[in-house]
Design a protein around this nucleic acid. Structure first.
Length: 255
DNA sequence: ATGGTCGGCAACCGA
């Protein structure tokens, strides 16, 4: 089983890239974030021509998550139970007995801002979500753009970037609290190398060419599932396409 | 050199 996560930065703008990527990599499951499309305008026709089924929850302009799957998708639910639900940031489903939780976690703007406090709180709400819906012994995959680079080897300049909203001690603690519930970082389990990134800022000149990146997109698995993972890797091919996203897909393979 | 990127969507906001 092949599972992937990809922040597409607009599904409609990236539609040919996503379709070509699905055709080439043939994952069983693809989770996407930042679809930036409200549900009425989701490009269902394009995906109805593929073998993929899909579920999605979006809103106008911002956020938006979707899951594509070659197998039946059941038990779909978006958002938290309490307010604000953030439906366009969290979608959960069950596929072949595996629970998929696809998240687009708030970026946080600046460390002093309300948005950063909201981000930190979001991890707490997510932990409560896992505690309520699953047991750590269940097969759960938590994937998506988590907007956190967990370790110094996950950012291009750990000294100067320390304190950034995506590389901040409080965010590291918030992430760790959720991971401690029962997750294994599947990419890190298979690759200990520094400089393996999934995001390069558009605003930095030549950030991709110079590999000035961040590892913000993750595939987390509960222990029983992680033990079945055979490989995990980051795909940089879409950056070479006509219209690259600032993120690139991460793929995990399971027995 | 007083700049430099995207996408959505129609003036800026978010990343």
């Amino acid at each position: 089983m092949k599972v992937a996560s990809f922040n597409v930065n607009s599904l409609r703008a990236r539609l040919p890239i996503v379709l070509a990527w699905l055709a080439e990599y043939q994952p069983n499951i693809l989770c996407v974030q930042e679809t930036k499309v409200q549900d009425d305008d989701f490009p269902i026709e394009a995906f109805d021509e593929t073998e993929y089924r899909y579920v999605f929850k979006g809103q106008k302009s911002y956020n938006g998550v979707a899951i594509f799957s070659r197998s039946e998708i059941t038990n779909v639910k978006s958002g938290f139970d309490d307010e604000p639900k953030d439906e366009a940031r969290l979608i959960k489903a069950e596929i072949n007995g595996v629970n998929i939780v696809n998240t687009y976690i708030p970026q946080g703007y600046l460390p002093d801002s309300q948005k950063f406090a909201y981000k930190l709180n979001w991890f707490g709400r997510l932990l409560a979500f896992f505690e309520k819906n699953f047991k750590p012994t269940d097969p759960v995959l938590w994937v998506g753009d988590l907007n956190v680079a967990p370790q110094p080897i996950d950012v291009y300049d750990p000294v100067n970037l320390l304190g950034h909203v995506c590389f901040h001690p409080e965010v590291h603690k918030a992430l760790e609290n959720v991971v401690q519930w029962g997750f294994v970082d599947v990419f890190r389990m298979h690759c200990k190398e520094a400089g393996q990134y999934t995001f390069w800022d558009y605003r930095l000149r030549n950030s991709f060419q110079c590999n000035l990146g961040w590892r913000l997109d993750h595939i987390m698995a509960t222990r029983s599932l992680a033990e079945k993972s055979t490989d995990c890797y980051i795909d940089k091919q879409p950056r070479l396409a006509e219209r690259p996203s600032d993120h690139t897909p991460i793929i995990a393979e399971f027995e």
